[in-house]
Design a protein around this nucleic acid. Structure first.
Lengths: 213, 213, 213, 213
DNA sequence: GATGAATGAGTTTTCATTCAT
DNA sequence: GATGAATGAAAACTCATTCAT
């Protein structure tokens, strides 16, 4: 049956991508050689070129896959909660700082790819895409909040809130990158909500934010 | 004359370090080969091993140098302004987002090294050092502000303010990394001050912050 | 039905051979990979081993086929003309220099195989066979002419005439290989006939030779 | 002393070129791998890329070198003889068919490169250059002869003679390629002179030509 | 019989390091 | 001390062949 073959093919492709991500997380991009990848995937040397046409394409695909996984994770969280703006924002902030998403592996991978983004168009593109998709989700939520809050220039306020929130989350990831073991998720969350509650006191609550887990 | 010799030695060391930084900024760490470095520095191949004992050490030194340059830049700014907490914070924020410090070259270098930090202890150490030194400056300033503001737990407030401010600045750097050409320094500054004014309304002023440039 | 099967088999074999010849003509022997061949033949990868037992055998077969095609072309021409020695020679010379036989594709293929002949016995053998068959035809024709011409040592004269004529034709092919676009068939033909008319003035005529086309 | 270093460098370059020619002669172009070359030259793997920037460039250089060697050989012969047209032609013909020039190694190399010429611009260029230089020498000699012979259209006659002579010599090389062991230099020479004496009876003599060796 | 995904030996290339000059 | 030619281990890639489906 052809389906069986196709299925193995697909599984092999995925194994290679995951081997790249594991290796990038553990050893970094520069140590992620073809030998390292096939050893982790337990597949043959030629397979990389068979499926991806070369190591660089495989690494690009891995960056795309990883960026998609991140976005899907966040998006899945949004489906589990209410549809108000503040529920969305809360979910995104908590999700982005949760163990499931903000962990050693993801952070390693993400900063490794970022470091290469300047010199590899494909990686820059996926880096950008992840960013743009998330930015959109966050902006839409803040736009609703700003409208409810009847602020002067709701569009501008929503933009600033988006910018500030994402900047802070980024900063928290960097904190985690540098000190994964002393990083305090509650503190990080609290600080983001401090910013949010200062911008939208009627929507966000500093104390409530502490009721994390 | 030994002094003359020593001087040339020192100049060559620096040329190599700067060649590394230029190359990392333009081509990324993985393309920064020994050949690339000596070509930029216009020095001989053996020089790297003579002065640094190998390429890896040179790159580590370049990371250290770059991190020092950053800190020195910020520190120099502080000497040009008043000594109140809010003056320090303002200077650090404006400085960190200024063209002199936040520019394509520095951002490229910084993210390239961050991407390697996980796998190279020396780079991680310098990354950390830069971070710790800055954190200290910022914390000291906020500690004074928090004391003046007579908040409940000034130490905790100062820590949160430090954490939040640095996180946001980090996030702004990432913004710049991804979209250097559409990045708006005024907007970035305004958003940081929005956070600061919400935490310390008596010390920071959202409008004042706009009087940039 | 076995006949039907057999027919498809035969067609596939031929498709592969022709794909090899096309590829050798266009890309050269070293670029004639299995992938290139099956892509041109629009057949599956396994087919080559099924029908020929490996790529090398297929290439050898292609060399044999090509050499046979050449000889058959010349031989067919001989059937269309009179049976005197000079008619045969004229036909062979004109045929060998005609567009139908001396064209870019054939020349490319022929020199490509020649270049490999030294290291591949099978190709050398077919190269030789083509040569020997043609030499035989030409010698037989010259033997008749030499006999008619009542020269001293007709056998020796026929051998020299054969040798010289074939050498010149070879040289004309090389000319064509190197400068296919500036090659002048009439000039080439005229020069061969100059040689022939000098050896057998009663049989070959320099002017008559110009009545080409 | 720098000269010593430079000298070794030059010797290594040459060793590599000669290793390529030996390998091409013995094993053919497709079997001439980097490993084969460095094994013959007894030099290190990296040297090929150090001196030539890659295997392909080295092979091209070898083709250029070989073509130059051929031309130099012929040219040197011309310096050892008189300056009349017929002396030049005689020398070129005898030289081109002599053991020193027409031998197994040269023929193997030459046909191997010819087979690749279609697909490698650099090789085609050197192939052409050798051809053009020789053609020039031969044409100049025939032009003088044709003028002396007071033929009708001396330019045209010289061109035909050049064309015919070179074509025949080419053909003789092919003969040698296919049957190096049964090849008879005297016979080959005699046949070329038969052509020459038929074109310029006053200048070339069939018998004289036999006084070879 | 036919297919084409998979294999891995062998190829070219890169590049940090060495060391004779 | 300084140079840069030389080294060779390790990298990425190619491709004829195999073989489960």
């Amino acid at each position: 049956m052809t389906g069986r073959r196709q299925e193995i093919r697909e599984r092999n492709r995925l194994s290679l991508i995951e081997a790249v991500l594991d290796s990038v997380a553990e050893k970094g991009i520069s140590e992620t050689s073809v030998s390292e990848i096939i050893h982790r995937a337990e597949l043959s040397r030629g397979m990389i070129h068979l499926h991806f046409g070369g190591k660089d394409n495989l690494v690009d695909e891995a960056a795309r896959y990883s960026s998609e996984q991140y976005y899907n994770g966040i998006y899945a969280l949004l489906e589990t909660t209410g549809q108000t703006g503040q529920e969305h924002i809360e979910m995104i902030v908590r999700g982005d700082l949760s163990e499931a998403i903000l962990n050693k592996k993801n952070v390693s991978i993400w900063y490794a790819f970022r470091g290469e983004a300047r010199n590899r168009a494909a990686i820059a593109a996926f880096s950008d895409t992840r960013d743009a998709k998330l930015r959109n989700l966050v902006f839409n939520a803040f736009a609703r909040i700003a409208k409810e809050a009847k602020v002067d220039d709701p569009n501008q306020v929503a933009r600033d809130a988006t910018h500030g929130t994402l900047a802070m989350l980024e900063g928290m990831w960097t904190d985690y990158l540098l000190h994964p073991d002393s990083f305090d998720r509650n503190e990080a969350t609290r600080i983001v909500f401090r910013f949010l509650s200062s911008m939208f006191p009627a929507h966000f609550d500093l104390d409530g934010a502490l009721s994390l887990e």
